Simulated scan of single mutants.
Amino acid sequence: MPLVHISLRTGKSEAYRQAIFDGLYRALHESFAVPEDDQFMTITEHDAANFRYGASYLGVDRGDDLVYIQITANDTRSVDQKKALFRRVVDLLGENPGIRPQDVFVNIVEVAKENWSLGNGLAHYA
């Protein structure tokens, strides 16, 4: 049950944003075995004054098309699954909507399964 927050600069089309959603869900489905219809994602757009990044931190040449992707997920995935997810996200977002690998920034926040309530005040995984 990942929860995905995506941040990017303003000005991208709806088709571009939907392609990000689609690519991320596909990568999560393939790499993390996320079930069908388990899609909980938001996109937040920022103007240039409210979007900062290190243009060359760790030798990565980032540009204004940088996309921040933060995934909150259960702490049940292996390091290999995480590496596979990072690679698959870059590949799929490179295909559509055409984001350069250098402009895909992914962070996973792991939480214990009992920290989720998906509605109705229930602890669905506890």
Rank of each mutant, 00 (worst) to 15 (best):
R88H: 04
V89A: 09
Y25L: 03
Y16H: 14
D37R: 11
E36P: 10
Q70Y: 06
H46C: 12
Y16N: 07
L92T: 09
N107D: 01
T76N: 14
R26K: 15
H5C: 08
A19P: 04
E30G: 04
P101M: 02
N96H: 02
D47T: 09
I43K: 06
K12N: 15
A49T: 13
N96V: 01
L24C: 09
Q70E: 07
R52N: 11
N107W: 06
R26Y: 01
D64Q: 08
R26A: 15
N96E: 15
P97Q: 06
L28G: 12
E45D: 09
D47G: 12
R88C: 07
S7R: 15
V109T: 11
R52E: 10
R9A: 13
A19W: 03
D61Q: 04
N74P: 03
G54S: 07
I43T: 08
S117G: 12
R77T: 03
V109F: 04
D91H: 06
N74F: 13
P2Y: 06
K12P: 08
V109W: 08
R17A: 12
S13F: 12
P101W: 04
A49V: 02
A27C: 11
Y125Q: 13
D64K: 10
F105N: 11
R77C: 00
D103N: 15
V60K: 14
S31K: 05
L3A: 10
N107L: 13
L66Y: 00
Q81C: 02
Y68Q: 08
T76F: 01
E110F: 03
G121Q: 10
G63K: 06
A55D: 13
T42Y: 00
V79E: 01
A49Y: 00
M41A: 02
Q102L: 01
R77K: 12
Q81T: 00
V67K: 09
D64S: 12
G121T: 08
N115I: 04
F105E: 07
V89K: 07
L24M: 07
L93G: 05
S31H: 00
F32C: 01
V106G: 05
I69Y: 10
Y57V: 14
N120C: 03
R17I: 11
L85Y: 01
P97K: 08
H46M: 11
Y53N: 00
A123D: 07
D80W: 01
F51I: 03
R88W: 12
V90G: 06
E36H: 07
R87T: 14
A112I: 03
D91P: 05
N120S: 10
L93K: 05
D38K: 06
V67T: 14
L28T: 08
S31G: 05
Q81V: 00
S13T: 15
G98M: 07
D47Y: 03
N107Q: 13
Y57W: 09
V111T: 11
E45V: 05
Y25G: 02
V111L: 12
I43M: 06
A48R: 10
S56C: 07
E110N: 07
